[in-house]
């Protein structure tokens, strides 16, 4: 075989040639878009508060409305464009979580509602739910024991 490098050397060599992500530009975009999504959430929160909802109801309703916005923008084929521009700025907020559930549901609709939409809906969000809920159970037990 025509080869002058070990696998380790080749890995380093290839890494040197590969273009790098523009971290400064990507971070700035993520900051601005992520911040704007939070501002929208804050506006909704303030609006609900002004309508006389208490803090618990307000935060629940705000989360619900933000999820709805994420779902609608995913369905309109806009959220992927936003994600391409903003990266983590639109992945981290709750709208990104909604996007991660709705996008596979749309993608696998062609395999039917049971084995397609139903089975594949959590293919990306699933691990987040599994480990998120598991972690909260563990923390809950610790909290219970500390207060025992």
């Amino acid at each position: 075989m025509y080869n002058i490098m070990t696998k380790k050397e080749y890995e380093k060599y290839a890494e040197k040639i590969a273009p790098k992500s523009n971290i400064v530009r990507n971070t700035a975009r993520a900051f601005v878009v992520g911040g704007l999504i939070c501002v929208v959430g804050q506006i909704i929160t303030n609006f609900l508060k002004s309508k006389g909802y208490d803090m618990d109801d307000t935060s629940n309703l705000t989360a619900l409305i933000m999820i709805l916005i994420g779902i609608i923008f995913t369905g309109l084929n806009v959220y992927d464009e936003l994600g391409r521009f903003a990266g983590a700025g639109s992945i981290v907020p709750i709208t990104g979580f909604a996007n991660s559930i709705v996008s596979p549901a749309m993608e696998f609709k062609s395999e039917g509602f049971i084995m397609g939409v139903g089975a594949k809906m959590f293919v990306i969000a699933g691990p987040v739910l599994v480990y998120g809920i598991s972690a909260s159970v563990v923390i809950g037990i610790i909290y219970y024991l500390l207060n025992f």
Binding site: P19, T74, D80, G83, A86, S103, P104
Partner: peptide
Amino acid sequence: EKQFRFPLELGTQRPPT
């Protein structure tokens, strides 16, 4: 994309490579 990567509508960034 569907078979090898992510759903099309998922808002991710593709690396430069």
